[in-house]
Design a protein around this nucleic acid. Sequence first.
DNA 1: TTGATATATTCCGATATAGGAATATATTTC
DNA 2: GAAATATATTCCTATATCGGAATATATCAA
Lengths: 123, 123
Amino acid sequence: MARASTTTDVFNAVAEPRRRQILDLLAGGERSVTELIRVLGLAQPQVSKHLRVLREVGAVEVREDGRRRLYRLNGPALKPIHDWVKDYEAMWSDRFEALDAVLDELQSPQGHKEEDDGHDEER
Amino acid sequence: MARASTTTDVFNAVAEPRRRQILDLLAGGERSVTELIRVLGLAQPQVSKHLRVLREVGAVEVREDGRRRLYRLNGPALKPIHDWVKDYEAMWSDRFEALDAVLDELQSPQGHKEEDDGHDEER
DNA sequence: TTGATATATTCCGATATAGGAATATATTTC
DNA sequence: GAAATATATTCCTATATCGGAATATATCAA
């Protein structure tokens, strides 16, 4: 088997930095392909191809306006990524690092093997 | 050119669902390769190869223990993903959707030309 | 030493990419 | 209708994947 298709899911689609850039631009509002071409400095076919991938995974939507196509972001399509990564957020937050230090401190004096995890956080 | 290497960055590394699964397992604490093989139900070489990719992008670290290798998560390596996607969170939060409705309401000065409540439901 | 266990690496083959170039299609303008 | 504009699609090619199978390497056990 080969690598999963870029259109398999939003994780694969967004692995390409140009496509993340396109989403970031669309976060500022609807844009035509020509506008994206200008801002990105890419060739037209490449932009259309990136947009196709993003459309196939539901990350963008199109609207026709004469000969132009206006693309807009569909934010909720990115939720699976956020849902996955948010559980790791605690691992680099200052608060967690402080807590981590405290736990290490408590654990070292006596070999009290707690091995807990189930770290949950509020927001 | 071809697709970017899986080891180019953490976005590419994590596009593969098995590798996300491995990270999720390691979030519960250090694991040996054999343990991962058992839980994942994958062949040993595939697990080693996935671990290599994760190691190359800094998402995991190894420790030697006799003939075993104990892998552990390096959470902060995932921060770029979170940093990127967190800005989109508002787009699917309940609070934002409520705000969205309000803004739509304000934007249609008097008559509602559409029955629609202004949400992306089409398709 | 021999054998068993744990892990990594190499080789193979099928597949899908990304960019570039060329071309196709639709719409607007003259 | 012809030219111009906007966008999508197709064709091409080099490359890197993923899984499977085989093999290499290191450590532990008898």
